[in-house]
Simulated scan of single mutants.
Amino acid sequence: MRPARAADERPDDHLDDLDDHADNDLGDHPDTDLGGHPDADLGDHPDTDLDEPAEHARFAAYTAELEHSTPAEEPALVRRILTDPDRTMAESAVTRHLDRRAAAIHATPDYTEWARSMAAATAGHAFLADRLREWTLLRDVCLNHPWDPEALTRSSSDWLQLRLAEAPATPVPALTLLADQGRTKRIRHLARTSLRLRRGGSRPCRL
C-alpha cells in the first residue's frame, strides 16, 4: 500500500516522473531520470526486476484513454480515473489531460462549456479545481477579457505566473504586473524579458 500523500504534495509534482515511464523504455530514453532506480544500469544487474511499477502503467493507460476520448466520453472517464486508489497518480493523469486540452482550446468558444463539464467531473479535487480556475484566468488575460489583477498576483500559482511571464505575446498589462509583483525573482525576470522582446500590439497567447 502506498503511504498517504503529504499535505503539501501536488499532483503536478509527479508528472515528470510518471511521464518518464509512460511510453518509454528506460534504456532508450535519454531524458529518463534514473536517480530513483538504483539498478538502472541493467547490464550490470542481471537480476534487476524489469516489471514496470503498477502506477506508471495505469498512468500511461489513463493518459492514452483521455487523449483519445470523445467530448461525450470525457467527463465520465475523468470521474472513473479519479476513483483510482492512488489519488496522486490519478490527479496527475487528469492534470496532464486538462493542460493539453486547455492549451488547445482556451482561445476558442468551445472552452467555456468544456471547462464547465470538467469542473463538474473533478468536483471534490481541490488541485484540479484550481488548475481549471487558472486556465480560465489565463484565457481571460490572453483574450483581453476583463480579469482581476489581484487574482493573478495574490491567488495564482507559480505555474500560471510562469506560463504568462515567459510568453512575449502575453498582453502588456499582465506582463507589467508580473514584472513588478511576480511571486518569484524568476517570474519577475521572465516578465521583464518578455516585455523587452514584445513588439507591436496585443496578440493571442501562444502556449
Rank of each mutant, 00 (worst) to 15 (best):
D44S: 06
G27Q: 15
D44Y: 02
D41Q: 01
D39S: 07
A40I: 11
G201I: 10
R154D: 15
A151R: 07
A61D: 14
D180T: 03
G35I: 10
D13V: 06
D110G: 14
E150L: 05
L190A: 15
L143W: 00
A169V: 10
D140E: 09
A165N: 12
A102P: 12
D39T: 08
L18Q: 04
T83V: 01
H45P: 01
G182Y: 11
R2Y: 10
L160W: 10
E67Y: 15
L190C: 05
R186Y: 06
P149L: 15
C205E: 01
A174P: 08
D130H: 12
R96L: 03
L190S: 03
D19K: 06
W159H: 10
D31S: 11
A40F: 13
D16K: 12
G35F: 09
A119T: 04
A4L: 13
A169K: 13
S156F: 01
A103Y: 03
P30E: 11
H45I: 04
A126D: 12
F59A: 04
I81P: 01
N144Q: 11
H37K: 12
V94S: 07
Q161D: 05
P173L: 07
S156H: 02
F127H: 14
D44V: 01
C142W: 14
T153N: 02
D51E: 05
A6M: 11
D23R: 13
E67W: 13
P38A: 07
A167G: 02
H189C: 03
G35W: 10
G27H: 11
C205I: 07
H125L: 03
A104L: 15
M1Q: 14
L128H: 10
T32N: 06
